[in-house]
Write a protein that binds this DNA or RNA. Structure first.
Lengths: 177, 177
DNA sequence: GTTCTCATGTAAATCGTTACATGATTAT
DNA sequence: ATAATCATGTAACGATTTACATGAGAAC
């Protein structure tokens, strides 16, 4: 699954501009995938060339014109082919966790700050998601939204309850210097 | 944080060959980062050129020779500089979740199979981690190991309890055709 | 006998980010 | 005034993966 394919997927949920697709990546897809304008716009252009999406220009009042994309039936078939393929393993990259592995090399205050920030970030995301989940119409939307909520909450609880383990290790390492 | 830096980090925990570093990425670092030989070996060569690690060749009986890398003090200083930098946001890419978003486009049996496989995968990883966590010596190691265990367990429980939401949506979509 | 583990590497290709470029409107 | 939102794009660069290449011993 690449960004190109996911753009196609987003368009199965309704017409959208490149800008709106980016928004969806930030909101609904934040837990799942990541994409910048630099990948979305070229992907849409290529999909248009290949006849997998069509494009109409809409002029708006007091807003820049936008290009609204629709998925074509060829696009729909291709997307279905893609999502029945076996899924590849999750790919995670977490600077936060990578740094924590080396907590013993850091000043205790730096470790505490890092964890404080992560806790604040997760708490904020959870709050936003809770609002969001309430308004979901379909079971799938609720499933996805609550999935994120559950995993983030588990992380948050774990951090609060176990941060002392890391903070103790960081302190000990300093004391031993 | 890139793979180069993380190789340096792994070497702060003890000398290792490229092959052994890859192993650590698969075991301990699987939740955190991902790296292939094609990125590790060139990284080690470059770090050697730059004097951030040193390398000695060890011949073994009935095993191919190996190159064992040690971090130098220059390498240590550079690594410390790297890990005090502000961390960038997590980057997740999950084909599994991306596919589930489109559950309504899939046959119900395909959705069920996907979830079954994920549950089996998580259950297996949890079992392996439980063993692993028991033998950890430091608080940091226990923290990291239990972190993974907690998050995976939350996901597993959630999937078991809520899979019916997705399976219902997939069935409804088919019925509406 | 065939697959797995140990062991190191290279080169091409892919994929995507970052930074740049532009510009109007709206909210603080 | 200044920042944020809306809106689209390109080009250079960077990072990694994938596939290829090689080979011996061990386990099943």
């Amino acid at each position: 699954m690449d960004i190109r394919t996911l753009c196609l997927g987003v368009l199965t949920m309704g017409d959208a501009s490149g800008y709106e697709i980016k928004k969806k990546f930030e909101d609904r897809l934040a837990l799942v995938f990541h994409a910048s304008y630099g990948s979305i716009y070229p992907a849409l252009n290529k999909l248009t060339e290949e006849g997998l999406v069509s494009c109409r220009e809409e002029s708006q009042e007091k807003r820049p014109d936008k290009k609204v994309y629709s998925i074509t039936s060829a696009g729909r078939y291709l997307f279905l082919d893609e999502i029945v393929k076996p899924v590849s393993a999750d790919r995670v990259r977490s600077d936060f966790l990578a740094t924590l592995i080396f907590a013993r090399l850091l000043p205790a205050a730096a470790v505490s700050k890092l964890i404080d920030e992560r806790i604040a970030d997760r708490a904020e995301k959870i709050a936003r998601m809770r609002e969001n989940c309430a308004g979901k119409a379909t079971d799938t939307d609720r499933f996805m939204c609550n999935y994120g909520l559950t995993v983030y909450q588990a992380e948050l609880d774990y951090l609060k309850e176990n941060r002392h383990l890391l903070e103790a290790d960081a302190l000990l390492a300093r004391a031993a210097e």
